[in-house]
Design a protein around this nucleic acid. Sequence first.
DNA 1: ATTGCTTCCTGAGCGC
DNA 2: TGCGCTCAGGAAGCAA
Length: 266
Amino acid sequence: MPELPEVQTIINGLNKKVISKTISSIIEKRRGTIIFGENIKICEFGKIENIKRRGKYIIIKTSKDLKLIIHLRMTGKLIFEKDLNNSSSHSRAEIIFSDKTKLIFDDVRTFGKIQIINVNKTINSLQKLGVEPLSNKFDAEYLKNEIKNRKAPIKNVLLDQKVIAGLGNIYVAEILFRAKVHPATLANKIKTTDLKRIVSETKSVLQEAIKHNGTTISDYRSVEDKNGEFQNFLRVYGKETCECGAMIQKIKQAGRSTYFCEECQK
DNA sequence: ATTGCTTCCTGAGCGC
DNA sequence: TGCGCTCAGGAAGCAA
């Protein structure tokens, strides 16, 4: 499940591999993978000028004033391939470059999408995104204000992309463990000291994970098709026993597994 | 406005 | 070996 650190690692890889390459064509291998913006007319895709991240979205800008907005959802990957004859088992779309290399969008569960729009347009889901957790705008004051009317469990609220853009199930588990906050605590009941810890642990977990090229539990791979290493540093997600010796609890919240330690997170 | 349920989808892992 | 079941989960869409 690519979350912010995995998406950032992919973008770092793309910046090494595909910047300034000319897109000669984009091939849809499975219907519904590529969505074109309204009234868009494309003669040429142009050259890749820059690649940015917003939340879990990858935004590729080209010299023909187009934006490719890619969301990998759970199992999407972008794999750089030097040989046009090679593909992958779940290739859903392929971006072909004029130098006979390509970028394969591989996605087992087919939830990922590539949207193509004009550079001056945007899409709703991007507009609705909350703050970037690694920016200075994300601080205890922001979080306090965002959650003051939220009665949902803190776990659910941290997963809400409209509040913070880029967190997913694994990193929220790690953040709450490090911040020593019980995931079922109602968001508007959390004390300011705990909010401050949530903010600082969010930043440090994400930074450490980016440093280790993300977390590979099953599907995530970098552009070079390599695993991340942060799974070796997880302290609660997928664990059975806590460092303190207590059993890790596993419950369902918002339809997803939550791992936490009853002793360390009260 | 907010919450939580359902839906999309495929493959892995399990019990029988 | 093979069948059917459950689980994994990001986010849109919907009802309450």
